[in-house]
Design a protein around this nucleic acid. Structure first.
Length: 571
RNA sequence: CGGGGCGUAGCGCAGCCCGGCUAGCGCGCUUGGUUCGGGACCAAGAGGUCCCGGGUUCAAAUCCCGGCGCCCCGACCA
């Protein structure tokens, strides 16, 4: 491709809306242009990179037996109503105004419809079907360039199995393929255990990249041997102690004490003696959650335990139900004082399991109850891990302490189980002629995210530093001194030879720009090798090569330059 | 959905508070010339519904009301 005639609109100035490096560089290098919020046009250079990523994905998906297909983006609204996901997605799902159709944000429903019609026997499985296709999500707030768009390309695959062991195998195959894909794309990534959230299912892992541009939060041990999404991360924190002596309950006056810190100071006791009460709605049931001291409640964990969406109770309703305000709620006698229709469910964090001599609210403003024994004085419906881990806490695998870092989700793999097959009645007959729902897995990779993340991890003040695997071109041939017939001839000749040899080369043959301009553009576009043909070096029979990543430059004799470049392409 | 900011030439911005001549600057673009190894220089030029609608006024980019779009922070998020 020639820069003189190619459509690669580079710009010197950074557009105002771009904040993160990848976004700035993708615009400056002419890879993309924004058409609207979260809507991007991929220009020739950007699309070359996208195609490289997609090809790597194809190779690895094919290698695990995946079969590529292509599903429509338009899909009947009815299909989504059957699985309840019109409601689950809410405003994220794009609806068409003049037909009962939606723009698919993912394709479990369509895959399930296909499977229902064509998979009828255990002999038809396992299957792995995948596609690389445009997805649509009406994100409330698109941001960070192509990292979070309203339209994006996703590789999504689906496994169909007749047994749970089969699902495990399909899932593991994907986990392995994903590692290969991200490694080949030159990304530093790590795998974290994740919550399967609204997707449903029995297990999931995310493939993440550490980045301040990310919107996920991950807890990792220092040596990365443990990594988990904050929604499920745990740590090794000591339990509240159980004291040998058992003291009687006592209400104490604690005027104007609202927070746990104030209470600890007022009573001069350790946080481990305090049971903080947090009240949530689980659908229409009020739930009192006891947390030790200042431990933060993790709403995702709570929702997982309760099996419903959760929302904090409104202060007025709390007062109405209990007769006390937020800072004075406690487990003792709570059920007795609330109406039967709104009987509290009481659960506690594992750190409080078996604890006694605790202090909590007395369900009376300005009073707290001391010497609470959770076994003796109240009926706890269960102890669960409900706390949000904090930076510096000991890693659950015993290896060092946790760091809390932001990350970008590159891929996500789910063991879906039978949720969709149940809803859409996609069943098969086993070897005994018995009917079962098909067991599914679903696996996604964000293609734009790979591109953007690669740039996030590989850039400097001058521009992009492409890995060979993703670089739009391997060589950037720069002709310096287009007035010299010798230079023009040498550059044109080398360009022709490279093309003939099937090597990818971008040729800066522009006659109307200064050498400095060409060098700046070459650094901005970031091809792995710059091949520079200048008058002086050429006169001495040499051609200069610059490795973009290291800045290393060297001269090579013109006569054997093709062999040398082919060697560079191989290594 | 809450908070903040912005919308003026293809891009980056000034002008707006405090209304007033022909709306300005840098980059880019066109033409001619000079230059030619790290985003060159000179000269001449083209390019504007000042986001949209309404209002106030002799007069609106500027003030007022309403709307739309974009960005940032938060909430939300397979």
């Amino acid at each position: 491709m020639r820069l003189s005639s190619g459509f690669i609109p580079t710009v010197k100035e950074t557009p105002a809306e771009a904040v993160i490096p990848s976004h700035k560089l993708m615009i400056r290098s002419g890879m993309v242009r924004a058409l609207g919020a979260g809507i991007y046009a991929f220009l020739p250079l950007g699309y070359r990179v996208m195609k490289k990523v997609m090809e790597i994905i194809r190779e690895e998906m094919d290698a695990i037996g995946g079969q590529e297909l292509h599903l429509p983006a338009l899909s009947p609204l009815e299909l989504w109503e059957e699985t309840g996901r019109v409601k689950a997605f809410g405003d994220i799902l794009f609806h068409l105004k003049n037909r009962p159709l939606v723009l698919a944000p993912t394709h479990e429903e369509v895959i399930c419809w296909l499977a229902k019609n064509h998979i009828s026997s255990y002999k038809d499985m396992p299957q792995i079907w995948y596609q690389i296709q445009t997805k649509f999500r009406n994100e409330p707030r698109p941001r960070s360039g192509v990292l979070r768009g309203r339209q994006f390309i996703m590789k999504d695959s689906y496994s169909l199995d007749s047994t749970w062991e089969g699902l495990d195998t399909s899932y593991d195959l994907h986990a392995q393929a994903y590692r290969k894909i991200f490694s080949r794309c030159g990304l530093k990534f790590f795998v974290v255990g994740a919550s399967s959230g609204a997707m449903g299912g029995t297990g999931s892992q995310e493939f993440m990249m550490e980045s301040r541009a990310g919107e996920d939060v991950i807890a990792v041990s220092e040596d990365l041997s443990y990594a988990a999404n904050m929604e499920i991360a745990t740590s090794l924190m000591p339990k509240a102690p159980r004291f040998p002596e058992n003291l009687p309950l006592e209400d104490i006056h604690t005027p104007n004490v609202k927070t746990i810190d104030e209470l600890a100071r007022f009573l001069k006791v350790d946080h481990s003696r305090l049971a903080k009460s947090v009240v949530y709605w689980s659908d229409e049931t009020p739930v009192l959650v006891l947390m030790m001291g200042n431990d933060g409640l993790n709403e995702a964990k709570l929702a997982g335990v309760l099996g419903t969406e959760v929302r904090p109770i409104e202060p007025e309703r709390l007062l109405e139900l209990t007769g006390a305000d937020g800072g004075s709620i406690g487990p003792v006698g709570l059920r007795e004082r609330t109406p039967a229709s709104k009987r509290f469910r009481i659960i506690a964090d594992k750190r409080l399991e078996g604890a006694n001599n605790l202090i909590s609210g007395a369900n009376r403003n300005d009073y707290h109850t001391t010497n609470i024994d959770l076994q003796r004085d109240c009926q706890i419906d269960g102890y669960y891990d409900l706390r949000t881990v904090m930076e510096g806490e000991p890693s659950p695998n015993g290896k060092g302490t946790l760091r809390i870092i932001p990350g970008v989700e590159l891929g996500h793999i789910f063991k879906l189980g039978t949720k969709y097959a149940d809803a859409l009645h996609a069943t098969f007959l086993d070897e005994h002629g018995k009917e079962h729902p098909i067991i599914m897995g679903s696996y996604g990779i964000g293609v734009e995210r790979i591109v953007a993340c690669h740039i996030e991890q590989n850039n400097d003040a001058d521009g992009i530093l492409w890995d060979k695997a993703l670089a739009p071109f391997l060589f950037h041939l720069v002709s310096v001194g287009t007035k010299s017939p010798a230079v023009v001839e040498a550059a044109e000749g080398l360009y022709a030879s490279l093309n003939q040899a099937g090597m990818e080369v971008l040729f800066d043959d522009r006659k109307d720009v200064s050498p400095g301009f060409k060098f700046k553009d070459a650094d901005l576009l970031g091809m792995p090798y710059q091949v520079i043909i200048g008058e002086k070096n050429l006169a001495a029979g040499n051609i200069e090569i610059k490795e973009r990543k290291t800045g290393k430059r060297w001269l090579h004799p013109r006569v054997t330059i093709m062999e040398h470049l082919q060697e560079l392409a191989r290594t």
